[in-house]
Design a protein around this nucleic acid. Sequence first.
RNA 1: CGCGGGGUGGAGCAGUCCGGUAGCUCGCAAGGCUCAUAACCUUGAGGUCGCGGGUUCGAAUCCCGCCCCCGCUACCA
Length: 655
Amino acid sequence: MAETSTGNKFYITTPIYYVNGRPHVGHSYTTIAADALARYHRLRGEEVFFVTGTDEHATKVVHAAQAQGLDTREFVDRMAASWQKTWERMHIAYDRFIRTTEAAHVAAVQRVVATLLASGDIYQDEYQGWYCVPCETYFRENELCEGTCPDCHRPVEQVAQPAFFFRTSAYSDRLLAYFEEHPEFIQPETRRREVIAFIEGGLRDACISRQHPGWGITMPEHPEHSVYVWFDALINYLTAVGYPDEQAPTWSWWPPDIQLMGKDILTRFHATIWPAMLMALGLPLPHRLFAHGYWVTDSGDKMSKSRGNVMDPWEVAKDLADLSGATTAVAVDAVRYFLLREVTFGLDGSFSMASLLGRFNADLANDLGNLLNRTLPLLERYREGIIPEPGPGAGGLREAIAQARERVAACLDHVDFRGALEAIWELLAAGNKFVDAREPWRLRREAKQVELDAVLYDLADCLRVVAILVGPFMPVVAEEIWERLGLAGVPPAWKDVEAGRLPAGVRVQVGRPLFPRVDLDRAWQRLEAKQEKTQKVAEDEPKEVAAVTVSYEEFQRLDLRAGKVLEVEKAPGSDKLYRLQIDLGEETPRQVVAGLAENFAPEDIQGKTVVVVANLEPATIRGIRSYGMILAVGEDKPLALVVADQEVPAGSKVR
RNA sequence: CGCGGGGUGGAGCAGUCCGGUAGCUCGCAAGGCUCAUAACCUUGAGGUCGCGGGUUCGAAUCCCGCCCCCGCUACCA
């Protein structure tokens, strides 16, 4: 039987992920870390509630659905299912998958808003500033990027409209006092200091409504407004345990014992607005917020979609399985191991196939796999695969096992996955040393049967402990080792992390190596060949086409026209912007603002016949009205202008 | 004076808060063993801890100044 519950409960969350995106290393990292912690606490016999889910509101979701020709509802259903599929593949055992479009969540959000409206923590005012329609985000003047949305670089609108605000500013002092009293609340320590500095710099009240509802939760009593997605999203942690029904059996989980997230969403959201919201609601705060770091590529670049260098852990695992010959499930566990072992949780780390393969060979194949694969055949050959009685002299690894147990527990209590894994690997090293020191083959030759029994028993016993300890990180691997030791059907439990608890008489199975060593030279050849192939495919068909297609009708909605550039002048107060006057065959030239100044001299543009998006929504950029957009070529900087290669009348249609 | 992170043997990192012989993994070299996936075990080579100054009996660790790299803009955790 599993260890009796200590009566402790453990509520752990990840952020809910935005449905539009596809999962990559970052999301997986948070979720795998949460899963490992959840599994560890279950192993300790605690009642665990592990929640993850999807964030499904915002107008951008509607657009994404349209782009795929789907009903929004159908689109989010599909995307949520795809996230669930990913977690299944990555061996994530969550207890609750929450979606923000669930009726329960909508009700919870409306209850929060109504409560805070009544208490005055949410108030109506007028919002003045810049607004990016597609992003549904407000910006201050100094946040704009060349007068455009800093996120999507599309034009922003100046707006002054009624909106609802959450009185974050009123909570600055209480938040700071709380952080003071609860130094463990925000981790790691550097992040905590960052948050404190951020709050001491002054909090603004957060605008938590949007006027064009689209796809979102309606503000109670103000149906013309919807709740801003971030405010909506944070509440999921409450919804998941039954809020607002405080009689619900699940409500006893509240508050979370730990909430994991990437460092980018700690400061502004999870460590300020979120605790302030809870204070306003009069609810206990989570015990700990833990922000982890970013994964960068081995060349030091941050992984991002726009750079096209993101790693999908599932794809990585499949590659690893392919290169090594391990099963895909084992390869998934290896990726989990890598992510939690390679880098101290909380710091940034670099992800590369080279370091993954390095760890796979050095740690998994050579240390863990090898110990398993030298122990089992010894048992098979010398003892017909039956675990012998320990007998006198057994217990040679008792110390090492006890040490590993204490260190794993201590490290995981501090969310130090790396330290915990290092401790387990020290036990493995002790096991490998033990074989060399005790030389079972020599004992066999010299017919020292009792001593041989003791050594073989200790080795198998050590592996049994390793299987338990490694389970939170590599659940499939742990189960496989468990079964090979003949323990199928026996539930692993923390109390069995102790020397001498392996039952004698069970039958082991040798089996194929779990982690077949990767031949690095061959691996590189194959990876390079694969890369060339994908590059070729990418050249054959522009990559964006595969992702999102637009219908012909949608294309036709763009009014593209040829226009002759009459004037070019630097926009005052800007390094990057030109103000252009363009003849589109209309009564007066069009004024267009374009970010070309860093890469083109005025004379490069003057007199050219360029392509203009003539029906682009007008925008004011750095105080200058812009009535169109010029097409240019270039990933992030304009490298070349799109021009007509023949003389054409100004205003000619481009099609 | 924008903010933050970092500069430690060939590579990647720990140690820096609470000064006291510089540590880990990988790689490299030699040896051992033969149960094992050329894996495992032992030993070794390799560092004036970015630069300069200061405090101290003693500094990678504290103080001052300087240099260099990287984020903070990329709808991404």
